[in-house]
Design a binder for these strands. Structure first.
Lengths: 210, 210
DNA sequence: CCGGCTACTGTATATATTTACAGTTATTAA
DNA sequence: TTAATAACTGTAAATATATACAGTAGCCGG
């Protein structure tokens, strides 16, 4: 078999190892495994480890205490270990999707649990129209990709091939995109006449320079 | 003394531990340390570990093999700690070092290349005194740990056991800590009369919620 | 029905690891 | 000068840990 699947129990063991490392910063011993699962024999843990080793999700260094290593394959089996980088979207070229390859400037690994909702990408903000919300020119807006927005949320909207960041307010078919800066005027959109696409919600800000 | 400095040798030991963990994914034993440094006695390693523990850069779990943990303070001492998470410092208890264990609320992995200088920790900002610089209440300030500041930089300063974030200006022995909000008054310090500690420089901002 | 796998119990042991105790030498701060 | 600290050597021992060997029981595909 090419894809060796883990049994339910093996996945439990793997999860425990992963969580143990997360918590203690070093891998568990056989007896710590046994204690957690209620094994009366350390050999129960040993054979589980051997099985996981054979299925290439962990590595075991022989004769070494706590010599357990999570191999890359383990990441696909136990959730929450994922750490995919966020693409940084710079100037969005007219007519291209925000996440089109040509708009991606860079990639950064940022802890997704940091923000109120999981961000899908970072958008470099240009202009000062959201200064009042503490979003300045050059800031990176963490964006959660969704087409739905509620009143008061900060959205990434696309209007006539232009991408802007504004506060969202809707009453029936009338949408207002509100800046947070008295020097700028609100944008009013009638959905019956003009097309408006919500690219996502702003869930956080990163300012790379002060 | 609040800032316990490491000796050259202790820094070497700490570096080795850090590199060992990076390479093996688990901490070294006393004899592995001894072998690397050429100690003929495991006790040489033991006493180094005790010293590092006393200086709060590592933790040692008693009676546990490989029970060494790198504490947040270690990151400021050993460079190139690429993928280590940044500690989040919340309310700083009076009289304790910013990076003391009791002040650490959480840890987040944030790409260090994102910011203008390498951040050592994140500090949760309270209050609106820096609103004009786009730093709002609840924001996380990415801080680069250094005691040196230049005019115009945003600093984390400690004054009378209080930690504040302000813009720095110095003329001789007279230091001004400037807020960026007309509702707040500048803080003036005469270095000959009052003690002022620069904990670090603000190198970026993360806003976890909008 | 057999062989191979999973999931254990139970015992035993070599060895890996921590850690205490007793010193030595050099450097630094009071 | 003295005391404290750093940086080790050397020995010993308790205990933490890995791991082999011998079983039991259930399940599955051929």
């Amino acid at each position: 078999m090419i894809t060796e699947t883990l049994t339910k129990r093996q996945r439990e063991v793997l999860s425990f190892i992963s969580e143990f490392i997360e918590k203690h910063k070093f891998p568990p011993t056989r007896s710590e495994l046994s204690k957690h699962f209620g094994f009366r024999s350390p050999n129960a843990a040993e054979s589980h480890l051997r099985a996981l080793e054979k299925k290439a999700v962990i590595g075991i260094e022989r004769g070494v205490s706590r010599g357990i290593t999570l191999l890359p394959l383990a990441m696909t089996e136990v959730p929450g270990t994922a750490n995919t980088p966020l693409p940084l979207v710079g100037r969005v070229a007219a007519g291209s999707p925000v996440l089109a390859q040509e708009n991606i400037e860079d990639e950064y690994r940022v802890d997704p649990t940091l923000f109120s909702a999981r961000p899908h990408y970072l958008l470099r903000v240009t202009g000062m129209s959201m200064r009042g919300a503490g979003i300045l020119d050059g800031d990176l807006l963490a964006v959660h990709r969704t087409p739905e927005a509620r009143n008061g949320q900060i959205v990434v909207a696309r209007l006539d091939d232009e991408v802007t960041v504004k506060r969202f307010r809707q009453e029936g078919s009338r949408v207002e995109l509100l800046p947070e800066n008295p020097d700028f005027d609100p944008i009013e959109v009638d959905l019956r006449q003009q097309e408006l696409a919500i690219e996502g919600l702003g869930v956080g800000v990163i300012r790379p320079t002060l």
